[in-house]
Design a binder for these strands. Sequence first.
DNA 1: CTGAAAGCGCTTACAG
DNA 2: CTGAAAGCGCTTACAG
Lengths: 375, 375
Amino acid sequence: MRRLDRLRRRSAARMDVQAMSKAKAGYKSGAATSGGEVNSTIKDVARIAGVSIKTVSRVINHEPNVTDAMRRKVLDAVRRCDYVPNRSARSLAGRRSFLIGLFYERQNSSYITRIQAGVLAYCRQEGYELLIHPFGRGNESVLPEIEKVVQRSNLDGVILTPYFSEWTQLLDFFDGTGLPYARVTSVPNDYRSPFVSCDDFDAAFRMTKYLIALGHKRIGFIKGHLRHNSATQRHAGYVAAMEAEQLPLSPDLVVQGDYSFVSGEAGARTLLDSAAGVTAIFASNDDMAAGALRIAHERKLAIPDDISIVGFDDADIARKLWPALTTVRQPVRELASEASALLISSLRQEAGSGEAARRLLPLELIIRESAGRAK
Amino acid sequence: MRRLDRLRRRSAARMDVQAMSKAKAGYKSGAATSGGEVNSTIKDVARIAGVSIKTVSRVINHEPNVTDAMRRKVLDAVRRCDYVPNRSARSLAGRRSFLIGLFYERQNSSYITRIQAGVLAYCRQEGYELLIHPFGRGNESVLPEIEKVVQRSNLDGVILTPYFSEWTQLLDFFDGTGLPYARVTSVPNDYRSPFVSCDDFDAAFRMTKYLIALGHKRIGFIKGHLRHNSATQRHAGYVAAMEAEQLPLSPDLVVQGDYSFVSGEAGARTLLDSAAGVTAIFASNDDMAAGALRIAHERKLAIPDDISIVGFDDADIARKLWPALTTVRQPVRELASEASALLISSLRQEAGSGEAARRLLPLELIIRESAGRAK
DNA sequence: CTGAAAGCGCTTACAG
DNA sequence: CTGAAAGCGCTTACAG
């Protein structure tokens, strides 16, 4: 009883809202609401347009084989009713959910926020909603957890970001499941499914060249988490640039990090303590660069006068640090939008039409304050 | 035809997955899948349990008036079938969507990421999914946009964070709509609906006292965006502490910011340029404190030796800055979980049962490196 | 190119 | 305390 009351009150309230918006939209007839229904349904539209509900359905779903006259009549009725298709009904009857899942490991919030913005911008306009699924770091049971989620959420498609997008077992799982997905990734392990990427190798190459052009010869490098393909790519770019300029590549110039702030601190300490005598540090991402910056400050090294420090990503933090980070701008939002576009188009088209779609987005060097001429 | 093929392939694949998980779960009988259906439905469960689908429905929905024996039979069948209720069907028949909306203005990504985590942690376990709805900063048409979203998304409830949670017109809209919502807010404008809050006034009071105890007398204050109640509260706490210690409160000690990094830079510049001779700056949030830090660095002021700078929020950035920020820890994740709890319980209970629920969470001073004894 | 019928998997409303 | 029937608002599958 109580719940009923509640529902009734809500319905009444909703009717007000709708009446309001209808008034705004210049709605006149009232036929659609005469039945007492809160929201207009496909039947209301059909009645007003004088066609069958199937025809309305065709128009709504952009199906072919509808005459222009029909289409216009229906669209007009849709407008007059302020009709919005019921997602649950479509989903139940059509066995589609209009839900896209975004799976990722918790990490830099700046990155994931941009990813979300990019996915939303594209998906929403296409009528899809986004379900986000963050996972704790280093969770052992990620794969079974994801299986469960997929079973429950009834997703139409999935967006994957690193390292999930580069985790072969996970991709195998999705492939086995038949669930369409698109990846944003550095260089992918394979071309089995649509992806959007950036040339991390090239950007790291250019950044290293930039440091070399500034006169640096002993450039330390802090690697990212090896689970991420970007870590390997960025490191390879650094190595290639050093070799191209015939600079010595002693092993104590490179330390392993894991993309975390703390690992950046540790890496910088190691680099600064070694006999390598680095005049510049290239951290594989901005969080690690922030850690390196902090160590330099602690040791009272002037930046960039005593030591240059550069990062990668152009995260929010890059311009808030002091000095502001010279880094590489990753078009995170665009990567996510493009991946969504690939996903949704693969949802619509027949699968297996040749090779999976892919796209490459440019990376840009952002010169700020944290790198300068070598002493 | 192509789509059909696709669907068929997906169905086949899904069956594999399900077969796998059933095998894992020790599923034996196969009765539920003998009909060739991919996922088991309420009918399968009813058949196996030997009851009507209505009884299964009762158990699933935790309705009262079911004998223990029945309940056990049903639960057992649910387990054997690996049954997961179809969200769309429930939603269509029950006029509930099991969808919670989170509306917010784009801002500090650290904050919103924690909010999401808190909401998800609670909602998911209760069977609700989260739809995030970020809005661009300063968008004029937020309200109409939200109306549209609410109409389309068919949400069961909404979580609001500042300043949406303190925006009277928006609350009026939701109240008019009858859509249940819960707020995380500083001090709310009223008690019309459930909310979770922190005592910003008190925390600002304590932080100011802390600075005073360090020997500071001329403490500059950078206010937050006035749309946020927290801005007023934090400022009032600062004022109260200054007055309590009978410290002069000259007007050039307080400057207006808007919670952005850039406004923190501007505020710090003003404060440092004024005749007030501040020895400490209390920025109303960490982003502005980061801006102040940068200005201090630019001016070659040692922190905290020449000037102390403190923030508020304990955002991700706080410990990545140099020196690490002394600040106030806001339990953002917990705020969001609690708000979700209030929302979901209001979804279940009859509304209007007295006053709206509320909860107060504690704020903690985090002493790090950016504040020290006054010169 | 258009439509009438059946059905998606649940919950509601009502009996008993 | 339990169940049979109707129906939520769409799409599918099939005729014409």
